[in-house]
Amino acid sequence: MKQSKWFSVRTELTQKQVVTLSVMSFIIPLLLWSLISYVPFIWHPKMEISEPGAVSYFNKGMLIDKEDFYREVDNLEGTGKPLPKGDPANPVYLPAPHEVAAAFYKAFTTPPKRQEEKWLHESLWDSIQVIFWGFFLSSLVGVPLGILAGTYSVASKLYEPFIEFFRYLPAPAFGALAVAILGIHDAPKIAIIFIGTFFQQVLVISNTTRRLDPSLLEAALTLGAKNVTLLFRVVVPGIITNVYKDLRILLGWAWTYLIVAELIGTSSGITWFITQQARYKNFDNVFAAIIIIGIIGLTTDILLAKLGKRLFRWEKNNAATA
C-alpha cells in the first residue's frame, strides 16, 4: 500500500487520520491554554502573595502586578524588615484548565447566592427555550418564504429586495423597540433571535431552492406534473437535504444572537449566569458556562447530523449530514 499522504489536494484522509486530526483540533488549544497556565515563565504578569512580609497593603492570596511587587521588595531591601514572598500568577480572568474543570462540577452543584436566583441548569434551560422558540418561529415563516422565492419569480421580486435591505439592520438595534412592544421577559429576546435569523434564512433558503437541478423539473413536467404538485412533489423533496443543512448552519447563527438577546429587558438565561459570575469574579465559572454553550451547540449539531442521516437515506454523499 502507498504511504498515506497528509497533504495532497482534495484527497480523502484515512479514518484514522480523520480521528487523529479531530482530536488534535481540541488538544492543541487545550495545550496552549495549559502552557500559559502552568509554565511560570510564560506570561504570568502577576504575583500571588504567599507572605505579605512588611508591606502593609499586601494580603495573603492577593494578586499584584509584578512591577509593583518588585518595587516593594526593592524598598524593603536592606531595611531588615521581612520581605514579601509570592509566586508568578496569571490574572484572575484566566483560570487554569483544572480550575475550569472543577467549576463544571461546582457550577451545577453550588446553590445560587440568593434564593430567587436560578441554578445554572435552570438558566441554561431558559436559554435553550429562547433559542428554540426564536429559531422555530423564524423557520416556520422563513423556510416557506424562501422556497417560494426560489421557485416563483413573483414571490422573489415581491419581497426579496426588502429582505435584502432589512438584513443589514443589526438585530440588537431592535432591542429597545422589542422591549417596548413585547415587555421585558422572554418575548423580546425571542424577537431578537427571530430578527437575527429570519432575514438571512429567507435568502439562504431561496438560494438553495434555485440550485435545484432544473432537469428534474423538466422530467417531472414531461411526466405530467403541474404547478402545485411540481412544488410539493419535486421542488420540496429535491432541496430538503440542502435546506436541512442550511438550517443547521443557521441554528449556529441563532446562538450568536442569544447573548445580545438575553441582555434585553431583564437579563436572563446563561447570559445572566455569566455576567453574575463575572461580577463575583468567579471566572472559572464564566469559562465553564461559555464552554457549556459550545458543548451544547456541537452536541446539537452532531445529533442533527445523525438524524439527517436517518431521514435522508437517499443521499449518496450525505450532504445533509456532512
Binding site: 437541478d213 432537469s215 428534474l216 423538466e218 422530467a219 417531472a220 414531461t222 411526466l223 405530467g224 406534473a225 403541474k226 404538485t229 412533489r233 419535486v234 423533496p237 429535491g238 430538503i240 435522508f312 437517499w314 443521499e315 449518496k316
Partner: peptide, 29 residues
C-alpha cells in the same frame, strides 16, 4: 405533457425516490 414521454441524457431520476416510486411518479401525476 404526459402524452410525450422524455428520456434525458442525464437520467434525471428523482434521487429521493426509490426505483419503484420513480416509476410510480408519472402514474400518480
Amino acid at each position: 405533457g404526459p402524452d410525450r414521454g422524455m428520456v434525458f441524457q442525464g437520467y434525471t431520476l428523482f434521487p429521493w425516490l426509490t426505483v419503484k416510486k420513480n416509476v410510480m411518479f408519472g402514474l400518480q401525476m
